[in-house]
Nucleic acid binder design. Structure first.
Lengths: 118, 118
DNA sequence: TCGACACTTCGATAACCGTCGATATGTTAG
DNA sequence: CTAACATATCGACGGTTATCGAAGTGTCGA
């Protein structure tokens, strides 16, 4: 029988964060998790995530954000790109505007890694 | 009737983190949450939390930690004091040794703030 | 009282980060 | 093509942080 092994490729959301309280994290696991937490550990970025994640339509135009978080456009752009790089947001270019939406898997993954007590 | 209003004092674990995805965080909520996340967003501190939080006995002597995370004793002491200050660990002095244990409410609070999607 | 030990605090250093103004890139309308 | 606009990138500045060795503090046993 030609059984083909179905390789389960872990999704990004699964790869990012081993549970904190099941076994002592090794250096690599700790570094991976710290990377995502660092992306979230800033008040402006938290507000951006919160604004985008609670938007009625599920997405927000970058053009609206500087006034909402009271920072200049380059600063907001910088924070958004960090959040995209960390997998927390995704970016879509539409015409001259950039739209951002939440990638909820990432938040869920890191949240559960913190809560999961075996 | 002399009705006395029972004031519900929020516990520390409740105060720390408003849910990210129920309504847009204001500046103060974002700052509070960022403070706890900053305390966790470092690989050495994550390993310390993980080591202490998974210890059989529920507590770990500071004396054992420098070798476990491969940092000098002053550096470990610094990280531990940040974690205590953030409410993630608690410290108890016993004789000349300092013992640390997890305060699980804090991790739970921040984890749930990330996961809670209303 | 003294010495050994556990830990904290201090001071210094190098790296990193948030922020901004200026500039570059890219898109659309005319 | 050009002007206008949205966004990204650059370069700089000031503040923060992780790290270490050295020195200080507190505790215990002899």
């Amino acid at each position: 029988m030609n059984s083909v092994k179905t390789l389960r490729v872990p999704e990004e959301s699964e790869r990012c964060c081993a549970p904190l309280l099941r076994a002592a994290l090794d250096e690599e696991q700790a570094a991976d998790m710290a990377e995502v937490l660092k992306a979230l550990a800033d008040p402006v970025r938290l507000r951006l995530v919160s604004i985008i994640g609670t938007a009625e339509s599920g997405e927000v135009c970058a053009c609206d954000l500087p006034v909402l978080v009271d920072r200049t456009q380059p600063t907001v752009s910088h924070h958004l790109s960090l959040l995209v790089k960390a997998g927390v947001l995704e970016r879509e270019q539409r015409g001259k505007w950039a739209w951002f939406r939440l990638r909820p898997q990432r938040l869920a993954a890191v949240g559960e890694a913190l809560v999961d007590t075996g």
